[in-house]
Design a protein around this nucleic acid. Sequence first.
DNA 1: AGACATTTGTACGTATGTATT
DNA 2: AAATACATACGTACAAATGTC
Lengths: 86, 86
Amino acid sequence: MDDEQDTPEGPFRASSPVPVYAQLADELQRQIEAGELSAGARLPGERDLARTYRVALGTARRAIQELRDRGLIVTTHGKGSFVQDR
Amino acid sequence: MDDEQDTPEGPFRASSPVPVYAQLADELQRQIEAGELSAGARLPGERDLARTYRVALGTARRAIQELRDRGLIVTTHGKGSFVQDR
DNA sequence: AGACATTTGTACGTATGTATT
DNA sequence: AAATACATACGTACAAATGTC
């Protein structure tokens, strides 16, 4: 079934006390810990994430920064963000 | 002479290999290390910085984030950014 | 070398929400 | 209640790094 990219995946709500960027970061962390995103795997691009989860580019970037801060991924200019080992 | 707030202070140039936000962070770090901003002192607000240095709000915020990352200041919601001891 | 596509980085500007005083 | 200040969220454009052809 190829119904995964048009599923809204979200929706994240701004009314939550948890910021949208943190909700997205949490969701991605869940995917990493569930093994849906394995170590070494590349995350979807910022724009892909923004589209998929219906958030602004800046919000997607903020979520990615959050994951970097949590030590879960490493980002390289021109390449993408990759899940860290451990 | 009170000519300090209308002096452009900058100007920072986007043509530099050093990003504008880093140029601003460097300038503020200089002021801190020169004692122009002492430990415990509050930095100008983000919007003040943006106006004074003629940069966008987001760029001023980025510079402040940079100083946080460098461990030079601490920011508190609703209060401001304060120079750290040491 | 050069062109091209993809992806992240920087910089701009605005509106609204939340915390502090 | 009001003023001030940081936080979040939106959207856009161009620059820079990477990889491929």
